[in-house]
Nucleic acid binder design. Structure first.
Lengths: 342, 342
DNA sequence: CTGAAAGCGCTTACAG
DNA sequence: CTGAAAGCGCTTACAG
């Protein structure tokens, strides 16, 4: 019953750069250069090293590289949701922008929770990221402290700041909320309700835009607002439509803070026999694919989410390289999509 | 014009474990233990180290830990799409299952592309992951080679294999396709079309199930199949409805390989004045949220995507710990959701 | 263009 | 329960 003596070596058993170098008959630092800075090495050596890499099936150890070089080649992206098509489009833009470089993108889903954001950031900061892409402008004090202490370059997405010390890429959520409300007012609606869910930063700013436009038109009435913290879903939109009509039966238009709620509200109108837009106008926000296809098609605000991700990642990459940004705040705008539902 | 002499030290400037140890008056290996194996250290020391960590704002360097310990605490997840709600639900399940441990989840979006899968895997393997979660059973030979060479534990999601050497969590895509077709046949339909897009592994298996059911009922006809490699979207569903009706005008039911296509087909029917299901029955696959709310509500196949992610991650974690799996192939089943559209 | 040595910041046996 | 030393697999100045 003798115990197997475990080997003293802590080697992982994987092919190392040293093995590649030995096979190619060069020093390992030369092999390193042949791989990461091929131009600084003679063609013959480059060839030999490349061949050794293939023959041995060498896979570089990223942890070792990060430790030795102080460049992790990691970019952290924090989004509040992965089930929301808005943020998956943002991610697609980021991936496309970073595709060429061999960055490793660490995607964190904060689920609209400060606590989750703190936790994820704590874990991801251990990877010593070269840059961070954040959603939104407001974060918990702890997150702010962690970010400041890390000294990692940051670009914030979705909204625009007026703080010149920040970098932001997005559009004005406030202006967009204001513009949609103004559109409904111009159509002659007087009793325009606002339905908001999740109550994240962006929803609240759209609501602010709505309120301001209503005040300007002297149409403001707290009874026309319905705000709940639950996650936005089609089912919730259907439910909130009922609650809004119960709360303000004379409501003649409803501005839903996003398309999911608008879709649910419209489906519910169909079930109740309420004609949209004749009896009740309904509009949404974000222009999800279904909005153009539903019957009635949905009036909404088109948002440049793919471009936000793409431009934010491009900006972050240039900052990491030490370049000065052309502008700290890149406004990508929004588009009012007037369709059948309002 | 004298150049600044750069310091010889390559230290990152970040707070190190050594600094924490010094502050606490212990050796750094003791500090290490106090942090990662608190039980193996006296309460007094644990306290002192903890305090030093807080005072200094110590953030462990994950690269150093990975290099020294051979445990990266990284789990790689490869999904073919992030815009498909099916896979975001899978991811949610994975995240929930791995929440307690401090795993870092590396999410790779292969975009249904073998080349992209190879590229991502190549990059992610450099991080020496402790485990890999894959979507689907079929991969390119290169990917298979890379996976085999890496010797990293793997669990495959979405479908079931019959290879006892693999670990899979999902349900039979073939059976589900067969069951939905059988449902339509039992409803009395004779000319049942199949619309498939993307043509990924799962779509092809659903199509196989459809074909077999049609053959069994002696209803098979190649003219009833319409398969295109484009990504599934609502817009494509609308277009394919037209092409299917042009190709087989006597079609009395259409099985769409997923809900996006079904939604588009239904919206298009509404625009053309085709009554669903009276003139044409339409059904989908996956039971996306809108399917229960649309008018008509959509008959579809409910799939346990969240659970697939959750169970697959749980299984992978247990394998990483060296435990033997209860079963190599976990069948989570599917549910036929009979609604109004078919 | 190429290489010997040191070091990045941790953890692992091992000893006491 | 605690510690001195070695080592994980790379890259970085520096020298030639």
């Amino acid at each position: 019953m003798s115990k197997t003596v475990s080997p003293k070596s802590r080697a992982s058993g994987r092919v190392t750069l040293a093995a590649v170098a030995e096979r190619a008959g060069v020093a390992s630092m030369t092999a390193s250069r042949a791989i990461s800075q091929p131009d600084m090495v003679s063609a013959a050596l480059r060839e030999r090293v490349q061949q050794a890499v293939e023959e041995l099936g060498y896979v570089p150890n990223r942890a070792a590289r990060a430790l030795a070089s102080a460049h992790s080649k990691v970019i952290v992206v924090l989004v509040p949701s992965l089930s929301n098509a808005v943020f998956t489009a943002v991610l697609a833009g980021i991936q496309d922008a970073l595709d060429a470089d061999d960055y490793q993108i660490l995607i964190g889903n904060t689920r609209y929770s400060d606590a989750e954001e703190e936790k994820l950031l704590g874990i991801y900061l251990q990877s010593n990221p070269d840059g961070i892409l954040l959603s939104g402008l407001s974060h918990s004090p702890r997150v702010e402290r962690m970010l400041a202490a890390s000294r990692v370059p940051i670009v914030s997405m979705m909204d625009l700041s007026d703080d010149p010390a920040q970098l932001t890429v997005g559009f004005s959520q406030f202006q967009a909320g204001h513009a949609m409300t103004r559109y409904l007012i111009d159509k002659g609606h007087k009793r325009i309700g606002f339905i908001g869910a999740q109550l994240d930063e962006r929803t609240l700013k759209r609501a602010d835009g709505y309120r301001q436009a209503m005040r300007e038109a002297e149409l403001a009435d707290p009874k026309l607002e319905l705000m709940v913290p639950d996650p936005s879903t089609i089912a919730l939109g259907a439910e909130l439509l009922g609650r809004m009509l119960a709360q303000s039966p004379d409501c003649d238009a409803i501005f839903c803070c996003n398309d999911d709620l608008a879709h649910g509200a419209i489906y519910q109108c169909q079930r109740r026999g309420i004609a949209v837009p004749r009896q009740l106008a309904i509009c949404g926000f974000n222009d999800l694919p279904a909005s153009a296809w539903m019957n009635p098609s949905v009036t909404t605000v088109g948002t440049p989410r793919y471009r936000i991700g793409h431009e934010a990642a491009t900006l972050l990459r240039s900052v990491i390289r030490g370049e000065a940004p052309a502008t700290p705040h890149l406004d990508l705008g929004f588009t009012l999509m007037a369709r059948e539902s309002a």
